[in-house]
């Protein structure tokens, strides 16, 4: 691990973790620099949360190392944890305490106190848009407000690295946008961000670099452009259809132009080399296999296409 001076806020190397016979994380390693937002994308059970747990010092790795601000992170670490703001996927707040009390409680655990804590709590309440409801019990908040408070706790001590584990799950569009704007602002201010999500559009919007994790391994990593280039001049084709989708998927899978096929509810997702010249053949195969096609969308390659290409399956929201 380089020193703090090299701009790296976090580096993890060759992390391994197994629960009994199940290997959850198998050699994960990546770095995050100051001001960089790193997205960790992967389907459920891919190892995202286990990786994050080891990075935040919640879980001991079977092998591998994590360094935050140049110091090694373990479950017993104290100093590296001062640099990390952890926002769990679950809303980890006390519902019977007010927003202000929740922030104050965790602020004290981060070693803050006195007027400094008081004013920082007020700042964070403004930042997360809960200043008006500061003295209301968290239990009375909407899901989005609880999510914002959940994030506020992670920001309270001005961490160098903010770790957000699927922070927008179950959030209304307005709150989701507010959360994304906050993350963008924090990144601009120089905070390193580790962001896991199911939502490709969030990753595309926020992340400077993305690591795609599947079955406990990072299968690809890079900027959006670098990842998209991995699949070359391939297009993403979304076929909205009904009927026998399984047979349709099998039928098109045999075509030389079709690189990947994913069956989803209400249609098929395909990665196709040269969609313009091969679309007619694909539709003939689809309808011939018993599916009724309603519409077809052809998109430029994006992270979703990369994800489908690398993991061989459609994203599951």
């Amino acid at each position: 691990m380089g020193d703090a001076g090299d701009g790296l806020v976090m580096e993890c190397r060759d992390l391994h973790k197994a629960f009994g016979d199940i290997v959850a994380v198998d050699g994960v390693g990546f770095t995050i620099s100051d001001g960089e937002t790193y997205g960790l994308l992967g389907p459920n059970g891919a190892g995202k949360t286990t990786s994050i747990s080891m990075i935040c010092g919640l879980l001991e790795a079977d092998a591998g190392e994590v360094f935050v601000d140049g110091e090694r992170m373990t479950t017993r670490s104290v100093e590296p944890k001062r640099a990390v703001g952890y926002v769990p996927q679950d809303i980890a707040i006390y519902p019977d305490l007010t927003a202000r009390e929740n922030l104050t409680f965790f602020g004290r655990l981060y070693g803050m106190g006195g007027d400094g804590l008081k004013s920082r709590v007020s700042e964070v309440l403004e930042l997360i848009g809960l200043a008006e409801r500061a003295d209301d019990k968290a239990d009375d908040f909407s899901g989005g407000m609880k999510r914002r408070l959940n994030i506020g706790i992670g920001l309270l001590h001005k961490p160098h690295l903010l770790v957000l584990d699927e922070p927008t799950v179950g959030v209304d569009p307005q709150s989701r946008n507010a959360i994304l704007e906050s993350v963008e602002r924090l990144s601009i201010e120089g905070m390193g961000v580790l962001y896991t999500t199911h939502y490709m559009e969030e990753a595309e919007r926020l992340c400077d670099r993305v690591g795609i994790i599947d079955s406990g391994k990072i299968v690809a990593e890079g900027t959006r452009r670098e990842l998209v280039d991995l699949i070359g001049s391939q297009d993403r084709v979304r076929v909205v259809a009904s009927g026998d989708l399984k047979s349709a998927a099998e039928a098109v899978d045999g075509l030389p132009s079709v690189v990947e096929v994913g069956e989803r509810e209400g249609g098929l997702d395909l990665i196709v080399g040269g969609a313009a010249s091969n679309l007619t053949e694909i539709l003939q195969k689809t309808t011939g296999a018993g599916a009724v096609v309603t519409s077809v969308d052809v998109d430029e390659p994006d992270l979703e296409s990369v994800f489908l290409h690398l993991t061989g399956r459609a994203r599951r929201d």
Partner: peptide
């Protein structure tokens, strides 16, 4: 409830010894 909500686990992420 603290364990169920993940608050206990969140405490572990702070610079507080177990």
């Amino acid at each position: 409830q603290s364990r169920q909500l993940g608050v206990s686990r969140r405490m572990v992420s702070t610079p507080t010894r177990i």
